Simulated assay, not measured.
Amino acid sequence: MAKTQDSNLIPQLPLSRERVLATALRLADEEGIEALSMRKLAQVLGVKAMSLYNHVTNKDDLIDGLVELVISEIELPDLTIDWKTAMRQRSRSAHTVLLRHPWATIPIVSRVNVGSAMLRYIDATLGCLHAAGFSLEMADHAWNAIDSHIYGFTLQELNFPFEPSEYAEAAKMGLPLISAEQYPHMNYLTHRVIDGSYDGLHDFEFGLDLILNGLDQLRKPT
């Protein structure tokens, strides 16, 4: 006896905001936020574009929702441990999450993001710093300084034109442009990268330690 035409079909999952955002996040990670459109998202979901507007208002609302998903992946500071350790763990987590979602840093720093995940993230950070002895005003300066390092370092890492394994060869190719007479310090470091005695890698922890140690001088111990 012949099978009915739809006996092997998998039931279509109902469309929801969560499903729309999860699919959009995957597309943004794979192709970048610029390539994400409502039409393409609808095509991947197997629905008509107009049906998306029952779950997201427009592309701005879509991006706000994606930012919320990314921020929710970042580890909140742990109030039960030393504040510097908590801030270091939070910063490492944020850096890792932003590398996992390479498109996300710009929407985070260039938009007014006031979703619950973002507000919880900021308030928990302020609370950790305040509990450590910073005034709320100084805590606001502190977390902004920390996050400026996270975002700036992440963007530089994502957009640097060479992979770490290519540094020595790139240094060798660039050496003729960096004469010892005109640029003695850069010439010295370039030779060290070429001969392998210095890796030339940018160090996230180095900058983070400078900021945390500097901030420690400004707090009033509890």
Rank of each mutant, 00 (worst) to 15 (best):
D6E: 15
S7V: 13
S7H: 11
L9K: 15
L9M: 09
P11S: 12
Q12D: 10
L13K: 14
L13P: 11
P14D: 10
L15M: 09
E18H: 11
E18P: 02
V20F: 04
L21D: 07
T23C: 10
T23P: 05
A24N: 10
A24L: 03
R26I: 06
L27A: 08
L27S: 08
A28L: 02
A28G: 10
D29N: 13
D29V: 03
E34Y: 01
A35C: 09
A35R: 13
L36Y: 00
L36Q: 02
S37L: 00
S37F: 00
R39S: 14
K40H: 13
L41R: 01
A42G: 07
V44W: 00
V47L: 08
V47E: 15
V47N: 13
K48R: 11
A49N: 14
S51A: 13
L52Y: 08
L52D: 04
N54T: 09
H55E: 14
V56T: 10
T57A: 13
T57S: 12
N58R: 06
N58M: 09
D61I: 06
L62I: 01
G65C: 01
V67H: 03
V67C: 13
L76W: 04
P77K: 10
P77E: 11
L79E: 13
L79Q: 14
I81F: 02
D82C: 04
K84P: 04
T85Y: 06
M87S: 06
Q89S: 13
Q89M: 11
S91C: 09
A94H: 10
V97R: 01
R100E: 15
H101I: 04
P102H: 06
A104M: 04
T105I: 12
I106N: 12
I106E: 15
R111I: 04
R111Y: 07
N113S: 11
V114S: 14
A117C: 05
A117K: 03
M118N: 14
T125M: 08
G127C: 08
L129W: 02
L129I: 08
F134Y: 10
F134A: 09
L136E: 13
M138C: 08
W143H: 15
N144C: 09
N144D: 04
I146S: 09
I146P: 05
D147P: 02
D147I: 02
S148K: 06
H149D: 07
L155F: 06
L155R: 11
L158A: 06
N159S: 15
F160C: 03
F162H: 06
E163L: 14
E163D: 15
P164V: 03
P164T: 02
S165G: 14
E166Q: 11
Y167R: 02
A171T: 01
A171M: 03
K172L: 00
M173Q: 02
L175T: 00
L177R: 01
L177Q: 03
S179W: 00
S179Q: 00
P184S: 03
H185M: 10
H185Y: 12
Y188N: 07
Y188T: 09
T190M: 02
T190F: 01
H191V: 00
H191D: 03
R192A: 15
S197L: 03
Y198I: 02
L201C: 09
D203S: 08
D203Y: 04
F204P: 06
E205I: 05
E205T: 04
F206S: 07
D209L: 02
L210T: 04
L212T: 10
L212I: 12
G214H: 08
L215I: 12
D216M: 03
R219G: 05
K220W: 06
P221D: 12
T222D: 08
